[in-house]
Amino acid sequence: MIQAVSDQKKRMHPHKFTMWVAIGSILMMFAGMTSAYIVKRSQAGWMMIEIPGIFWFSTLAILLSSATVYLSLRSLKQREMKAYRRWLGITAIFGVLFLALQIAGFKEFAERDIRIVGAGSNASYSFLVAISGLHGLHVLGGVVALVVMAIMAVRSSTRNYNTVPLEVVATYWHFVDLLWIYLFIFFNWMK
């Protein structure tokens, strides 16, 4: 059992810890979704998914954004505020780009005349849009957090070198990135 408490050595900041628990919770939601997908796939009437090619580009965009958020955090730690704000902004832009590319991917289905929802739709494509849609909402949440942080960084008159808020957001951002990588592999592997 966890015994050593009183010795206040370098422990994780409670907000960061909270974020890790939240990540566990979000993972459970996607675990629920992907298990449902697996169950459904083993049943009759499953239609093979053709993953749109654009998804490779969105994957690249979100991968790069993980690198830029890392650079932003490093700049903040070195107190280079200009670089910090620049990388923060670039990360948010990559986030928006990711979302735009995802939406473009789903537009492709419409052109190929594949129904994702509504009459004549197959559960396989509906799952694809439900799961990546939920993931997209989480990315959107991250973008909002990044934008809020960028605005605060520009507006605040006092210099604030506290790295905890950005560490929390960066942790989350790496997580939605990895989550997408997992989902992308999952969809490609379990068509």
Partner: peptide, 25 residues
């Protein structure tokens, strides 16, 4: 709660899809 409620949320989201978007989960 933290580990099980999100799974109910998944189930509810799929139900919302079936109800309002004509999917067949």
């Amino acid at each position: 709660g933290v580990l099980s409620f999100p799974v109910l949320l998944s189930g509810a989201v799929l139900l919302l899809f079936d109800r309002n978007l004509g999917t067949s989960f």
